[in-house]
Amino acid sequence: MFQLYKKRNFNDLIGDTFNFFKVHGKNYFANYIAINGGVLLVLIVLLYFFIKIFYDGLFTNGLPNSGNGFESYFLQNIELFIGYGIGAFILILILTLINSLYPIAYLKLVERNEETNTTNIWKYIKSKIGKSLVFFLLSLVILFPITIIIGFLCFALVFILIGIPLILIVIPALFTCISFTYYNYITTNEGYFDSLSKGYKLFTKKPWPLIGSTMIIYFIVNTVVSFISFIPYFIGIFGVMFNIETEGIENQQETISFMIIMFGITFILSISLNYLLQNIISINQGIMYYSMIDETEKTSNISEIDLIGSNEE
């Protein structure tokens, strides 16, 4: 059994993130695919056909289309492009909403010592969809402008060098504060502004380990996503170079076709991995949240009592 309420230092925050997946990883991702897999698959299929239609617009009778030719093709199929765009937007919203609630639901069931099955997870998610929508709408008005202003100031300071270390500190700090606010708002009965205040207070209790943990987990996840996603892209690049050297430019259409297919695979793979592996970042934020709750409310002793008689998985 994984213990959520526990005092953790910097190393523990990172180590326990991966320990969580050692204990719950198989069950976690199996339930994630069961809940989110269908929507993600539909999105991938939609993106595949969108890329295919876009590719068809670039070539007419096997030849590259001129700028005017592609513009004419786009105008003739504008309803199709708009339909795909609206469909993709709706699916991305659904995926983002469920993606943000899934790790919270799973950790809540772990906290309650309830069975982490698809039924219980989905039941919790459905009960919190309304609160999640309210949070995102309020944050769009309150947190989003503040984040944009702070981000702009940091990027502006890049020109005098001090902005570079500021970005590395401020962005993870903002991300963690918002994550703590969201976790608290969803898992408690506190209001938005109370959760915002609590999220900030939890963060400032031990900011540097939290910032460091967020940076490292984010770096690991994005490195893995980038490395795996760009494999088809580099295959496409080397394939194009090989075809040009061996066959010349006569088979230009075939070469470009292969390149576009590889680009499409890269794009789809990147989206799929991002949704899947963002769970690692979200779980890391959840573990930090429960650790900071323990720092303020001393709940680890209660958790240890609850674990008496339980066997570690």
Rank of each mutant, 00 (worst) to 15 (best):
I169C: 07
I211V: 06
Y200F: 05
K22E: 09
I169Q: 10
I160Y: 07
F242L: 08
T96A: 15
S291N: 05
Y32S: 13
M1W: 12
V240G: 00
F193A: 06
T266Q: 13
I44M: 11
I86Q: 07
I231V: 03
Y5K: 01
L140T: 09
F21W: 06
T188M: 10
I305G: 06
G199R: 06
N65C: 12
I121H: 07
E297P: 06
T119G: 11
N11Y: 15
A30W: 14
A156N: 12
F267I: 08
C154Y: 01
L168M: 14
F74R: 14
G248W: 05
D306Q: 14
E304G: 09
I283Y: 08
I261Y: 15
L273E: 06
E190V: 13
Y218Q: 09
E71I: 15
S270K: 14
K22Q: 12
L40T: 01
I142V: 11
L4T: 05
Q253Y: 15
F152R: 13
L161W: 15
I44F: 10
Y275G: 01
D56S: 14
K52W: 07
F18K: 08
G236L: 00
F144E: 09
M215V: 11
I129E: 08
L273I: 01
S310C: 08
L168Q: 10
Q278A: 12
P207S: 05
G130D: 12
A156W: 14
S229Q: 05
A34N: 15
S282F: 08
Y218D: 07
S300Q: 03
C154R: 02
L143F: 03
I280T: 12
F70G: 10
L47P: 10
I162S: 05
F193Y: 11
N99H: 01
G163C: 00
I162G: 00
I268N: 15
L137F: 12
L46C: 11
L168A: 14
S257Y: 06
T118G: 10
I146W: 00
I94A: 04
A173H: 08
T176D: 08
L210G: 00
S229P: 04
S179L: 10
I249P: 07
Y55L: 13
Q285E: 15
F135Y: 12
L157E: 09
C177S: 13
I148K: 02
E312S: 01
I256L: 09
I160S: 12
E190N: 14
